[in-house]
Amino acid sequence: MVALFVILFVAVLLGIDLFIQARHRKYPIMAAAADAAPAAGLRETVRIPKSVFFHPGHTWARLQDGDHLEVGIDDFVQKALGSIDGVTVPAVGEFVRQGDPVITLRHDNKELHLVAPASGQVQSINTDALENPQLLRENPYREGWLMMIKPSELASNLGMLHVAESAVNWIKEEISRFREFLNASVAQPAIVGESMLDGGTPVSGALEHLDGEHLQNFEEQFLR
């Protein structure tokens, strides 16, 4: 009896916790103050790690072991897209050039093409993330890395990229620009969600509501 009681007691506590968590998800504004867990994605935030170089096309690169570049997509585009059903990257051994659209994100049957943040040969790819694109949502800068490249013209490539304060200012600009883009693209504000009414424009999943043509525009204006 004791064993049963203990297990039920723990299960009830877990149940209460799940219930509370669920309510937070339902009323994210209330939760915002209490819960800033990035994984939960409750608050509309965009993360910018200090040691990551950002390409204006919303991909990033990070120097690893001095002679490799880890590459992935940034938090902004990940959040804007909402959910990702599939990712394609070049095969190991291929050569990519900075600015070439080499990464493809799929959502439903829509596709977004992102550019390589630097030039080099692909050394390895993150099969974990390709099989399970959820990882890109959890942390696009760590588990969600996509490929490792051996840079060929690192010094000149870096000049194109934003880092630290420059990256922060740039992302802020991008968010503002994205809002304007949304307002212009979407005639009916209702489409992007009710929270439009309280003044804030949601970024999360905003692209899900765009049709092919507008998505094309987004790609041209933000991902090049």
Binding site: A36, K50, I171
Partner: peptide, 29 residues
């Protein structure tokens, strides 16, 4: 890793659209 977390709603609201077009830096980017 230290990181900056930007609240989307805290990003500067810019007054008007034409201003962006006039911003050479934004154009360049």
């Amino acid at each position: 890793e230290e990181e900056t977390v930007i609240d989307v709603n805290e990003a500067p609201e810019r007054a008007a659209a034409p201003k962006i077009d006039g911003d050479p830096a934004a154009q360049l980017r």
